[in-house]
């Protein structure tokens, strides 16, 4: 388990608890009471820390190295039924964007999401979850295929942004994202979008136009990362905390602005602290959301989605 800086008091108590338990096992001293007290303090400390996370701390939680990624959710929710589908049929298979068919309960879904790696080697292989144009085009190909057969789509958002590379520009990164956004506004099957980690700008929205958009509790979604925002508006990387505040990028803020529909609660300590509980919460949210959407006709579904996005924005006059 890795700890973030603000989680260090928890680490300290967990270490103490571990030592206490070892003493209890290895000697005749009765430490039950001491252990209990430490445990109590641990729970209180966790509550204290996790209930009062600042926006920047939530950003850090969303990037926690132990956090579950797209494929972890898919494995947990679909088990062996998941059939990964590759390639954009034009250029190559983007490893930062994965997709395929799988069952959740009795229902088939097309599941698409950005994928990050869990160590140096796989992080590079997955390009840190930053898709190239072919990733967005693969996603669109899979969505169109789902539409053809009336299969609902789930997209899982977890990206620090679309890859800002030379070749990505040559192959039309902007065009690929734009095309996806437009086609998703009129796709004739239900789209359920869940932000499971980082929802950075066009790179996230490129697979993020949904009938319902849900956000895990400790994730962020905005037009720019706090670091980049700091470097542009403050001309320094040092103001990321202020930028995170200013951008109103937390799940609560996003719900208030009606950009997301629902917040999925995470276990105390974050999605990674109790993975099974997280997976179950996500599964329940998907099934509940699909129930709300499944009886709508394709026409009503698209009209409702278009109407929802047409309403977004705050202005005078």
């Amino acid at each position: 388990m890795e700890y973030l800086e603000f989680e260090l008091p928890i680490k300290e108590l967990e270490d103490q608890l571990g030592k206490c338990q070892i003493i209890g096992e290895e000697s005749d001293v009765d430490v039950t009471e001491t252990c209990k007290q430490i445990e109590k303090k641990l729970v209180a400390t966790k509550k204290e820390i996790y209930k009062n996370l600042t926006p920047w701390q939530r950003v850090q939680m969303s990037r926690h190295p132990n956090r579950p990624y797209t494929l972890d959710y898919i494995k947990a929710l679909c088990g062996d039924s998941f059939l990964e589908l590759h390639g954009d049929r034009n250029f190559k298979d983007d490893k930062a964007m994965i997709g395929g068919l799988g069952k959740i309960g009795d229902q088939s879904y097309m599941i698409i999401g950005q994928q990050k790696g869990y160590n140096t080697k796989t992080r590079q292989y997955r390009n840190f979850g930053m898709a190239n144009p072919e990733g967005y085009r693969k996603a669109l190909r899979l969505m169109k295929s789902a539409e053809k057969f009336g299969i609902p789509v789930i997209t899982l958002l977890d990206t620090p942004g679309a890859y800002p590379g030379l070749e990505a520009e040559e192959r039309g990164q902007g065009e690929a994202i734009a095309r996806n956004i437009l086609e998703m506004t009129r796709l004739k099957v239900p789209i359920i979008t869940i932000v499971i980690g980082e929802g950075a700008s066009g790179g996230a929205l490129g697979i993020g136009v949904g009938d319902k958009v849900l956000m895990l509790e400790n994730t962020w979604y905005s037009v720019i990362s706090p670091e980049s925002c700091s470097s542009i508006l403050w001309r320094s990387w040092e103001y990321k905390e202020q930028a995170a505040e200013a951008l109103k990028l937390t799940a609560n803020d996003m719900k208030k602005m009606k950009i997301v529909d629902e917040i999925i609660k995470e276990p105390l300590g974050g999605a990674h602290s109790n993975r099974d509980k997280t997976f179950l919460a996500v599964k329940n949210a998907i099934e509940k959301t699909f129930d709300e959407l499944k009886n709508l006709s394709p026409k009503d579904l698209v009209a409702q989605r278009m109407d929802k996005y047409s309403q977004m924005g705050v202005y005078k006059g």
Binding site: L182, T185, G202, S222, V223, L249, I259, Y309, V314
Partner: peptide, 18 residues
Amino acid sequence: ARMMEAALSLMQLAKTSV
């Protein structure tokens, strides 16, 4: 997109695409 409107700006991409 205009940073000072953050996610609301981002959603204008979807709105105009509609």
